[in-house]
Design a protein around this nucleic acid. Structure first.
Length: 490
RNA sequence: GGUACCGUGGCCGAGUGGCUAGGCAGCGGUCUGCAAAACCGCGUACAGCGGUUCGAAUCCGCUCGGUACCUCCA
């Protein structure tokens, strides 16, 4: 499967063939969470999108270094706050150390990602652990004349930068217009211009998250961490920078400007942006009352949710849309995804029941060739899944003997099907636990159902129904089959 | 207001000039002691109007509707 990967590059607004800068190595940087609250639905989309990319590239034989940061300092709430950052604010509110809050939510995030079967990145650096690197970068930008000091804080001089370079090229913004629009409004704060952004902020006296720097005790501006850490771990330039579309402006725009101002050239070769998630057609937001955390989803505890949705249902649902499309969450859509996933998993188990023949009536090469062709086209996972469902039908026909397959083709099919479903799409069969307990439970259920089968054989339907009914009460769905039985823990 | 993007069958969601995905729901059938499940089969839809073309969901224009970003956001 050596179809070349095509990536939609936000910078050029078109699909481009992906050529690593230093093959077979690939550098991938993705904006991670700001750890000041519980992980929510919005965090799941980029995590899963770029997990798919990571898995796909790895599967294709690339050596990928995947860096996904944790933002644990310096997220300015807004200009009015001038010096308060989100994390410090929350910390005072709850009477906790900032790092305690950060630790708590970082673990919450990582746990949720694990549930979604998102692989841990190669490096998960924290902004707070890279203050020195960020200070160094501020110095470089100052030395190159693209920043100025104001009352202990350092700001990036967007107007000056834009005179030589193009600020706004990523998001398609006309910065001259923005400058003329904002200039009149300003004058009340330290910035020369409203569009300037902070590289270093002086901490106000009550501000508890602070580090010494040549300019003041303070903290780095938000955009700086990604520039500093991507450079540190991936070098310059590096291949792919990903994140949510909402980060395109100003965050990623600022990253580009910082790189050029500090190093004289851009750092990123391909920019990828996943689209947003909507809920019942509306953007998810705290003020709209439709803000759903991942835990609420997994436990079904949010008032908009009719039932529990398992992590794999969420993952599968997200993969059923292409990452650049908006994706609308609704009970109906999630339930459809849940059913579809169950069918896919059932087919996977069915693979083990297929009896080989001496010839094949199906072309097993079709599955990987079409599925990987889809994925190589800017990660078109919905098409890849459609191909899988074509093969679900084939697998069922094979299991019923309507189609035939040789032993060697069957092995290929099983291997390819599972590679795509489990390794690349990152699906997990939630039925097949894995723990000793789950294994034992499975064996016990098998035993009971075997006894039921024996009861049925001697037409002792009272016993057979009793076993089935009691299992049903315990939440085990029993299905009779021609060749025995099948069950599922609901 | 500026800048992008989108509008596909009951729902979700691919498809970017002819070959008309896929899932869920629905309908029909098979299987079955009963039940459930499962499995098989079935759907010519592309906001509206106009244009280009032999031919458009796909290109162009207009109209209507929606979303996102422009402030922290994934």
């Amino acid at each position: 499967m050596s179809t070349k990967l095509q990536i939609y590059n936000t910078l050029t607004r078109k699909k481009e063939e992906f050529e690593p800068y230093n093959a077979p190595h690939v550098g991938l940087y993705v904006c991670g969470p700001t750890v000041y609250g519980d992980p929510h639905l919005g965090h799941a989309r980029p995590a899963i999108t770029f997990d798919l990319l990571f898995r796909y590239l790895t599967h294709q034989g690339y050596k990928v270094r995947y860096v996904r940061n944790v933002t644990d300092v310096g997220h300015l709430e807004n200009d009015a706050d001038a010096g308060d950052d989100k994390i410090a604010k929350k910390a005072r509110l709850e009477q906790l150390e900032p790092m305690e809050v950060v630790q708590y939510y970082t673990l919450r995030y990582q746990d949720a990602m694990k549930e979604l079967n998102v692989l841990p990145p190669s490096i998960e650096p924290r902004a707070s652990g890279h203050i020195i690197e960020q200070i160094e970068m501020v110095k470089q930008i100052l030395d190159n004349g693209f920043a100025y000091q104001s009352n202990g804080s350092i700001y990036f001089d967007v107007e000056k930068y834009n005179a030589k370079h193009n600020y706004g090229k990523l998001s398609g913004r006309n910065i001259e217009e923005m400058i003329s629009n904002t200039r009149t409004l300003d004058g009340q704060n330290e910035k020369r211009n409203g569009v300037d952004f902070a590289l270093w902020k002086k901490a106000s006296p009550e501000h508890i998250m602070r580090w010494p720097s040549p300019w003041s005790d303070g903290f780095p501006g938000w955009h700086l961490e990604c520039s500093a850490m991507s450079t540190k771990y991936l070098g310059q330039p590096f291949d792919i920078h990903g994140g949510g579309m909402d980060l395109m402006f100003p965050h990623h725009e600022c990253e580009i400007a910082q790189s050029v101002a500090a190093h004289g050239h851009e750092a990123v070769r391909y920019w990828m942006h996943n689209n947003m998630i909507t809920i019942n057609g509306q953007k998810m937001g705290k003020s709209l009352g439709n803000f759903i955390t991942l835990e609420e989803l997994f436990s079904g505890s949010h008032k908009l949710l009719e039932q529990v949705y398992s992590p794999m249902t969420i993952r599968f649902f997200i993969l059923q849309a292409q990452y650049r499309s908006t994706l609308d969450f609704s009970n109906e859509a999630l339930q459809a995804a849940e059913k579809g996933l169950q069918r896919l998993m059932a087919a996977n188990r069915m693979l083990d029941r297929i009896k080989p023949s001496d010839s094949s009536t199906v072309d097993v090469a079709d599955l990987p060739s079409r599925a990987f062709a889809a994925l190589s086209d800017d990660l078109n996972s919905p098409i890849a899944i459609a191909v899988l469902f074509d093969w679900v039908r084939n697998i069922n026909s094979l299991a019923e003997g309507k189609e035939k397959i040789t032993q060697s083709d069957l092995e290929t099919l099983t291997k390819e099907f599972r590679a795509i479903v489990f390794d690349v799409l990152g699906i997990v069969d939630e039925q097949s636990g894995g723990s000793k307990q789950a294994e034992l439970t499975g064996k016990l259920i098998d035993m009971l159902l075997t006894m039921r089968l024996e009861a049925k054989a001697r037409k002792d339907f009272e016993t057979s129904d009793r076993i089935r009914n009691q299992l049903t009460e315990m939440g085990v769905t029993v299905r009779d089959r021609k060749d025995g039985f099948d069950w599922e823990i609901a």
